[in-house]
């Protein structure tokens, strides 16, 4: 297969190297079985039609990569730390049931998700993953939500930060591999180019450590989806505050697929359509205090 040799050398090998590096560096491969779909029994007619169109995924079991540190999307169940709970989990349950597959989660650091997907070690990524252009070059997406982000700052917003460009000269907590981290780096360079002070970028392991950094005052802000910011502020109302949605982020969230998983992607796309059409997605969003108006009409990217 001469056609694939280029990809084999320049992509697979580095990714194999990364998987050793990143996974050995502390990513858990622990799996949390959650799916309960009983295939073909109680699904809607639309779902049945979807299963008929994509029969190869029906009855299959898939491994879904996630990073369960994002409250209200995917987080560890405080009552049973082996379980992952959140909107994304319930949504995937509904999608899987509709498409006729079962799945289990593979937990890892956020930054390892896309490389793992490329390496074929996992079949999908469901992790509140923004379908950014650089990621869309590496993997495919089935979009299901519009993303709105706001800033988490100290109570009373003492540094009056309300936009990403307002971060010049201040510090921001991010975790690696995120769009927010990349945006902070780009903005910092823009700050310097404009003759302003650069942004001090504090890199932490995950969302919760970023929140901790703002709580202790080590960082001035962190950038997160509005629903996560709202939920966090509700926990520490006297210490931190959220800003209005920031204009710089107008992106979409999707389920990630390896570019060769065409069957699984097509089946999932059909299932998401059904889950949106019967109102399930909005209902689940409401359950998890995610704004139901953020549902995005599903499309496949790129």
């Amino acid at each position: 297969m001469p056609k694939f040799s280029h990809r084999d050398v320049s992509v697979r090998f580095p990714i194999a190297l990364l998987s050793i590096g990143l996974l050995a560096a502390g990513c858990s491969s622990g799996k949390a079985a959650t799916n309960t779909a009983s295939i073909g029994s109680t699904v809607s007619a639309a779902c049945k039609a979807g299963q008929k169109a994509n029969p190869s995924v029906v009855g299959k079991h898939y491994t879904v990569g996630t990073s369960p540190t994002q409250p209200s999307y995917e987080a560890i169940d405080p009552n049973d730390p082996s379980k992952i709970v959140g909107f994304d989990v319930d949504f995937l349950d509904a999608v899987g049931k509709c498409a006729g597959f079962t799945y289990s989660f593979a937990k890892s650091d956020f930054q390892a998700l896309v490389p793992s997907l490329q390496a074929g070690r996992i079949d999908m990524v469901v992790a509140n993953l923004i379908a950014s252009p650089p990621r869309a070059k590496q993997v495919n997406f089935v979009i299901y939500q519009n993303d709105l982000e706001s800033l988490l700052v100290a109570h009373g917003n003492p540094k009056s930060i309300s936009t990403v460009s307002g971060l010049c000269g201040n510090s921001v907590a991010v975790f690696p591999g995120t769009v927010q981290a990349g945006a902070a780096q780009v903005q910092s360079d823009a700050c310097t180019a404009a003759g302003k002070k650069p942004i001090t970028i504090n890199t932490y392991n995950d969302f919760l450590s970023c929140v901790q950094a703002v709580l202790t005052g080590r960082s001035d802000a962190t950038i997160d989806p509005v629903s996560m910011v709202a939920a966090t502020v509700a926990k520490y109302p006297t210490k931190i505050a959220g800003t209005d949605p920031i204009p710089e982020f107008r992106s979409q969230i999707g389920i990630g697929f390896n570019k060769s998983s065409t069957q699984l992607q097509a089946a999932t796309f059909a299932a998401v359509k059904s889950v949106q059409a019967d109102g399930t997605e909005k209902k689940l969003m409401t359950n998890w205090k995610v704004d139901p108006s953020s549902q995005a009409a599903t499309v496949e990217l790129p």
């Binding site: 320049s10 190297l17 490389p115 690696p176 981290a181 990349g182 890199t203």
Partner: peptide
């Protein structure tokens, strides 16, 4: 940390590491 940060943003692993 910077190597990981860089590679996780650019998806370029081998040369960075």
């Amino acid at each position: 940390q910077r190597s990981q940060f860089l590679s996780s943003q650019t998806f370029v692993f081998f040369p960075v590491f």
